[in-house]
C-alpha cells in the first residue's frame, strides 16, 4: 500500500478528519469509477445514480475498511457490484435476458445525447455487448480504462494469467464480429 493511500485510510478512520478525507477520496476516484460504471451501463443518468450510490455506501462502510486489500480494488468492486445489480434489476423489470438487455442498451446509444461515437465505435459497442459479462468487464477495464492486469486481477479477484487469456479471447471475438459486419 502506498503512503498516500495509507494516509487517506488513516484519515478516514479519524472522526475529526473523516469528512475532509472522504471529499479527497471522492475527488480522487470519481472519474475512474464513473467511466468504469459508464462502460458497463452505457447511459449517463444511470451511471450518475449508481456512482452516487457507490459513494454513499463507501461513506457508510469505509470506517470498517482495514486495508487488507487495496482501496481502489475495494472501490472498484463496490462499483462493479452496484452496476451488475442495476443491470440485473433492469433485465428483470423488462423481463428480458442480460444478453438482450445489452443489445437494448447499445441500440439506445443511437438516440443518446451523451453519445457521440462514430459508426466504428458503435460497432465496437455492439461487439462488446455479445461477450459474456466477465469478458466485457475485462475488455472494458483493459481497453478503455487502460488498467494494468495486476490491478484488474485485484479488482476481479482472479489471476493475471486468466485475465490475459480472457482479454485475448474477447479481442478475437470482437475482431471476428466487426469483420463479419
Amino acid at each position: 500500500m502506498d503512503t498516500q493511500e495509507e494516509h487517506l485510510i488513516q484519515a478516514l478512520h479519524s472522526e475529526s478528519q473523516f469528512e475532509q478525507a472522504f471529499s479527497q477520496l471522492v475527488h480522487l476516484y470519481k472519474k475512474r469509477l464513473y467511466w468504469h460504471i459508464r462502460n458497463m451501463v452505457k447511459n449517463h443518468d444511470d451511471t450518475d445514480d449508481i456512482l452516487q450510490n457507490v459513494f454513499i455506501k463507501v461513506y457508510k462502510n469505509v470506517k470498517k475498511f482495514k486495508g487488507d486489500s487495496k482501496l481502489y480494488s475495494w472501490l472498484y468492486r463496490i462499483a462493479t457490484n452496484e452496476a451488475i445489480t442495476f443491470l440485473n434489476q433492469k433485465a428483470k423489470k423488462y423481463q428480458i435476458s442480460n444478453e438482450e438487455l445489452q443489445q437494448h442498451l447499445v441500440e439506445s446509444l443511437k438516440a443518446d445525447v451523451y453519445y457521440q461515437g462514430d459508426e466504428i465505435q458503435l460497432k465496437l459497442q455492439q461487439a462488446i455487448a455479445t461477450l459474456p459479462q466477465k469478458q466485457q468487464q475485462v475488455f472494458n477495464m483493459k481497453y478503455f480504462q487502460d488498467l494494468k492486469y495486476k490491478e484488474i486481477a485485484n479488482i476481479l479477484e482472479t489471476s493475471e494469467g486468466a485475465l490475459k487469456a480472457s482479454y485475448h479471447i474477447a479481442s478475437k471475438k470482437i475482431e471476428a464480429f466487426i469483420k463479419a459486419l
Partner: peptide
C-alpha cells in the same frame, strides 16, 4: 484516465458534471 475513454468509446458527459458531482 478520462480522456482516452471519451475519445475511444464515444461516451460524453454533461458540461461541469464532475465539478458539481
Amino acid at each position: 484516465t478520462v480522456l482516452p475513454n471519451t475519445q475511444e468509446s464515444g461516451f460524453t458527459i454533461p458540461e461541469d458534471y464532475f465539478d458539481t458531482f
